[in-house]
């Protein structure tokens, strides 16, 4: 039983990470109808920039200069500033010119953006694997280990806490503020939003900045776990099944979808083999270890099942139709 709980908890914590990536997608998809393929690269770029500032790396030369190393309280706001700058550039050079274009054109522009950002990250900060040190706690959470015998990594708890806080802040921002209301209005009907004087350009910049901040959090959390390197940008692919599960337009959907996939993966990895053997072992000889490396495929299979039976996802926006 204890082992089961441990599996679920570690699944939930991994799921939080997936949710974070998916969150960036949902934000942008809601406000500008763009499927932001570049979210993963955005996370990589944000993390690289932060590490660059922390280590005092001189851009383009990739040489660390401790004299320019910044403390975290300075590096983080500066990185956020860089993300806002990217948001402004994206609006100015991409979104503005593609108003009212086909979905596929917007999507291709995002693929392009992903490559540009990836290249820019390489050129500016170098392509070697970097270690991020924000002074986040490492190792097991002793209290839980001592009292209940459950092993949980501290960093995962921190990541879950940060993600939770981020979601609460975003929810308040969306529901209670003037800008948040305008964002939801744009998501609903951008023409009507335009007609009441909401500036789409401003809204896009805000949304991309928020997505940039979410990307920064994602990048730092994943980076702290497995180092900051190119493979970080591939987590964007992981967001796809999460979104299919949760629905492309739903923030709660992104969160729940991430958690389901996180837990599902871990459970499948640990118990899947046994279950299969118990079910079909009578007729076939099955290796109980067939469910390995679930993180590579389980989420996609789950997404396929969802596409068959509930294509709008768990929390997909209800299509309101008056009769």
């Amino acid at each position: 039983m204890l082992f089961f709980i441990e599996t679920v908890i570690s699944g939930l914590l991994a799921g939080v990470m997936y949710s974070l990536v998916a969150l960036g997608f949902v934000l942008i998809f809601k406000a500008s109808g763009v499927f932001n393929f570049a979210q993963g690269v955005l996370a990589l770029f944000a993390a690289l920039t932060l590490v660059g500032f922390l280590n005092g790396t001189t851009p383009f030369t990739h040489i660390d200069n401790p004299a320019f190393a910044m403390p975290a309280w300075m590096a983080i706001p500066l990185t956020i500033l860089v993300m806002v700058l990217i948001a402004i550039l994206v609006e100015k050079f991409i979104l503005r010119h593609l108003v009212n274009q086909e979905q596929i054109i917007l999507f291709m522009s995002m693929v392009g953006l992903a490559y540009v950002l990836e290249g820019a990250g390489d050129i500016i900060w170098g392509s070697d694997v970097k270690v991020i040190d924000l002074g986040l706690p490492q190792g097991a959470w002793d209290w839980l280990l001592d009292t209940h015998g459950i092993y949980v990594e501290k960093i995962e708890m921190v990541a879950a806490g940060v993600a939770g806080a981020l979601v609460v802040v975003l929810a308040i921002f969306f529901q209670k503020t003037r800008i948040g209301r305008a964002l939801r209005a744009v998501a609903d009907d951008h023409q009507a939003a335009l007609s009441v004087g909401i500036s789409l350009r401003t809204i896009w910049i805000i949304v991309w900045s928020v997505a940039g901040v979410v990307a920064l959090v994602t990048g730092v959390m994943w980076g702290a776990k497995s180092g900051i390197q190119f493979s970080l940008s591939l987590i964007a692919l992981k967001a796809l099944p999460v979104l299919i599960l949760g629905g492309f337009e739903s923030i709660p959907g992104a969160i729940v979808g991430g958690l389901i996939i996180g837990v599902g993966e871990k459970l499948a990895e640990v118990y899947g083999g046994e279950v299969i053997v118990a079910m079909f072992g009578r007729w076939f000889e099955i290796d109980p270890g067939i469910f390995t490396a679930t993180e590579n495929w389980f989420a996609y299979v789950l997404a396929l099942v969802f596409l068959l039976f509930r294509p709008q996802g768990l929390f997909g926006e209800k299509i309101i139709e008056r009769v």
């Binding site: 003037r178 209301r181 305008a182 939801r184 209005a185 998501a187 609903d188 009907d189 023409q191 009507a192 939003a193 007609s195 009441v196 004087g197 909401i198 926006e317 309101i320």
Partner: peptide, 27 residues
Amino acid sequence: IQVMEGRHCFEHLTVEENLLTGAYTRG
């Protein structure tokens, strides 16, 4: 200000929120 053809309300916002979006430009 224009009231567009076909009403164009923000369907997933409440009536009051719809009205409040009209005051967006007033800060």
